[in-house]
Design a protein around this nucleic acid. Structure first.
Lengths: 96, 96
DNA sequence: CCAACGTATGAACAGATGTTCATGTCATTC
DNA sequence: GAATGACATGAACATCTGTTCATACGTTGG
């Protein structure tokens, strides 16, 4: 596949608010699916659906711990991108 | 609007291959709409439609020069994000 | 083994999105 | 000022996407 399409695929995944919140929720530390659902306010089912996509793109990695499964952002580049654009958003919202 | 939604909005715009190619085409130097269309292989109409969205999000800025309009990526953060993920794609495609 | 908990999956649906085709607008040239 | 070139816009359409609801799966405790 073309590099551009790979990039676009990643961006598209980050382009949904719910999925972005999920990513941000497990950016620094592994979180269980339930915890992510609670943190984002999305249903458990929806979170699981999204996590499947994020996992397929290797943006998150999941590890089973007894009954729960803990997900964490799997990529340093992704972390950088997110942090970078968070600054951007902060600037755009800017000082009122 | 929430910061997360702003970020997601930007990511979503970069999440379409055509639009991403358009962005990359005018990342370093201003390009006319026709030039962008030629560079990306998309129709003039489609490029114009996408440029409208990118302009609305202030990801590109357009300047009229006689008959032509030149667009250029308008934001340093965006440039950084794109370059950052280009490296990511390079790594993922990586050494076989 | 049965029940309970946490997570995953599948079907179905409403709404959004990318693209095309046709046409409109603005600036230039003759 | 009519014609041409470069870009913008609008309608229409097929496709994709996010969400929900119901249900299945795997793991632990009695």
């Amino acid at each position: 596949m073309d590099d551009v399409e790979v990039m676009a695929g990643i961006f598209r995944l980050m382009g949904d608010p719910t999925r972005l919140r999920i990513l941000l929720a497990c950016l620094d530390a592994p979180q269980s699916v339930g915890a992510i659902a609670a943190a984002t306010g999305a249903s458990q089912s929806l979170v699981s659906h999204h996590l499947r996509l994020l996992r397929a793109a290797r943006l998150v990695a999941g590890r089973r711990e007894a009954r729960q499964v803990f997900y964490v952002a799997a990529d340093d580049h992704v972390r950088d991108v997110l942090r970078n654009l968070m600054h951007h958003a902060a600037e755009q919202g800017g000082p009122t």
